[in-house]
Structures are given as C-alpha cells and as structure tokens.
Amino acid sequence: MNIDRIRTKISLFTANFFKFLLFNLFMRYYWIEWMLPFHVTNLMLGASTWLFFGKSFEGTNPIYQQYGADFISFLILGLMLNSLFSYTLDAFRIATLFTLRGRVGSMGQHLSMYDYVRLSGVPFSAPILAFVVDGYIEQFITMLVYLCVGLLFGLKISGGNYAVALLGVCIGWLAVIGIGLISASMIMIIGAWKGIEPIRWLVGVLTGLVSGIYFPFEVLPEGIQVVSRILPQTYALRVARLALLQGLGLSDLETDLGVLMLMALILFPLGVALYKHSINLLRVKTFVE
C-alpha cells in the first residue's frame, strides 16, 4: 500500500518534472540566441581581466605555495566553483518566487500555479526542481567557458586527485543547497518577496570576501578567518584546489572534508524541513500579492 503510494508519487514527479523542464527550456530558447553568445564573450573577457591582473604579480606571495604556486589555476577553480555556488544560493528562492507568482489558464480565467499544481496532484517539487535544474544548465556552460579560458592561459590540473575534488565539491554543494533552501523559506516565513533576502545576502557578501574565491583566505587577518571557517564554500574550494593542484588525497584532507560533511548534514536537512514548512504556510496564511 505504502510502497504503491510512493511509487505513484515518484512516477508523478518524474512525468511532471520532465514536462516542466522541457517547457522551461522551450520558453528560454531566446537565451541561446540572445544571451549565450554575449554571455560567453563577457565571461571570457572578465576571466581574462582577472588572469592578466593575476599575471602581474604571479607567485610573488608565498601564500600561493601551498596551492602549487599557480595563480591561474587557483583563480579559475575559484571562479568556476563560485558560479556554481552563488547560483545555488539563489536557485530555490527564485524558483519558488516564480512558481508562487505563476498563473495557469487561458482567456482571463486563471488559477494560481500553486493551486493548479495541488489540484492536479503534481508534486510541488516538480516545477521547482525543473526550474532549478534548468538554471544549472546555464551555470555549467559558464563553468565550461572558465575552463576553456583557463586552459588557454595554461591551467594545469592533469596530476590532480579528481575523485576527492569531486567529493568535496558535492558535499559543499549539498551544504550550499541547504542555505539556498533556508533562504527560499524566508519568502513565506519573514515575507522576503521583493528585493534582497537577508540570509542569502549575508552569505553572498561574506563569501566574496572571505571564502577564498579570488585569493587564499589564509591572507586574511586571523579575526576574519574565523568567518571564513563557518562558510561551507571555504572548505569546498580548499578541498577542490588542494586535491586538483597538489594531488592531495582523502587522508590529507580529512579534517576539511569532515567539517564540510558536518555542515552538509546540518544545513541540508534543516533547509529541506524549513522549506517544506514554509510551503505549508501558504495554506495556513493567505497572501495578498
């Protein structure tokens, strides 16, 4: 009985998830023509600016020694992971806003997207995840562009420990998804419908300064490094770089991976629970939008 129910739920999810995904892709076709070429050019020029800037004092600071004294590889990895993580911070909130504001219908007769989804038995996660996944496609393209620019400038990751780097990125990703979900819950909980969502803002603003995207966080004063150590991005970046650039393995990075794991184990379930709660609030409170 219960297994049957779970099975129908999963089949409902998959059927609708792909429908929504396809729909989103279709609706965003313009992106390929009117955004992608310009976007790619911007990214290439932006990344090059950073790289020339870096070249001008390459390797002069001994702090790069621990990352293989390779500023270009250091920076490219930072930029790539930053585009992944910063989108992840926003993804669920934007998807939720989009879905909650959405209307379905024709000729002046409309149902709210939420009601529509509920009345047709489509799991709410289907449109949300479809929207999020759709956005990741853009991020993966961005990461690919960074990678290409990096290779052009002499990015060296051939001797790296790919498995450990991937593990670190994935655990970090899970933790950041947790933060993204917490941020998305704030729509209903504190009413962050418009403008800045404070939690995402705080994490975003700190990440830029302290997590070591553009420079190793070890250059920061001790006091600020404390802040670095509470962000999962710091650890994910560190693990990915040390594994790829210095070829470090699991045993060398166990502390970083352990802390990251702990963060993911707290943030992810917390995010999911809070998000579920916030969506349920929709049927408890009612909103005038």
Binding site: R5, K9, V104, G105, S106, M107, G108, Q109, H110, L111, Y116, R118, L119, S120, G121, P123
Partner: peptide, 23 residues
C-alpha cells in the same frame, strides 16, 4: 492531503475551468 485530488475535483466556476485549458 496529497491524495485528495484523486477523490475530489475542485472547479471555481465552470468558466474558471478555463484555467485547465490552453486557448
């Protein structure tokens, strides 16, 4: 609550049924 849609169809006005349609 997630299964009630199987047993009940809610239509706010037969005209609002337009919400289930694409013109």
């Amino acid at each position: 609550e997630d299964d009630i849609w199987r047993h009940a169809t809610y239509i706010a006005g037969l005209l609002t049924g337009g919400a289930w349609m694409d013109a």
